[in-house]
Design a protein around this nucleic acid. Structure first.
Length: 154
DNA sequence: GCCAACGTTGGC
DNA sequence: GCCAACGTTGGC
């Protein structure tokens, strides 16, 4: 099992919205970066745990935990002409973009802020604390996972 | 709204 | 294949 960090703008899909979906979970769609796509396709596995990170918002940071309930499959939004994620160059036979499904596991009592993440020396390698990091999917080491849980309390 | 960092595009 | 121009991301 591996750990990941998934970025989302809460106005698009927040940890609260994810919680409302319950066991059905949500499709993690709209990843349009090849490096992130490759990780979704090749490495993210059923049962993996992910941190849900809120970006571009009032409270930036890790908001909670979700679990992968369906591994790599073609991102439906690439075929949807009405979606902002529509990609005319992608075909059913050769889909270009990949989704996974995740379901909510836990919302932290308080968001573990980016500031706090940056202040923790144990997390200096976390992609999200690095300047210019734009990957929407990034790996989290087991000890980093534990360190964040500790910061979240309990 | 600003701007640094990064990714993609396209002319050559 | 190089690289300048452009677009996007995302923290501040």
């Amino acid at each position: 099992m591996h750990y990941w960090l998934l970025k989302t703008e809460p106005s698009e899909l927040s940890i609260d919205t994810l919680a409302e979906r319950g066991d059905a979970g949500a499709c993690w769609e709209g990843v349009r970066n090849y490096q992130a796509r490759n990780m979704l396709r090749d490495q993210v596995q059923l049962g993996d745990k992910v941190f849900i990170y809120h970006s571009s918002c009032a409270q930036i940071g890790i908001a909670g935990i979700a679990r992968v309930i369906r591994s790599a499959y073609p991102d439906p939004s690439q075929f949807d002409k009405h979606s902002i994620y529509f990609d005319a160059a992608s075909t059913l036979e050769k889909p270009r973009w990949i989704s996974v499904d995740v379901c909510h596991e836990r919302t932290f009592a308080e968001i573990v802020s980016l500031q706090a993440l940056k202040a923790n020396p144990a997390l200096s390698d976390l992609a999200v604390v690095k300047k210019g990091s734009r990957l929407s999917v990034s790996p989290v080491a087991a000890d980093e996972w534990k360190a964040v849980l500790k910061m979240a309390g309990k």
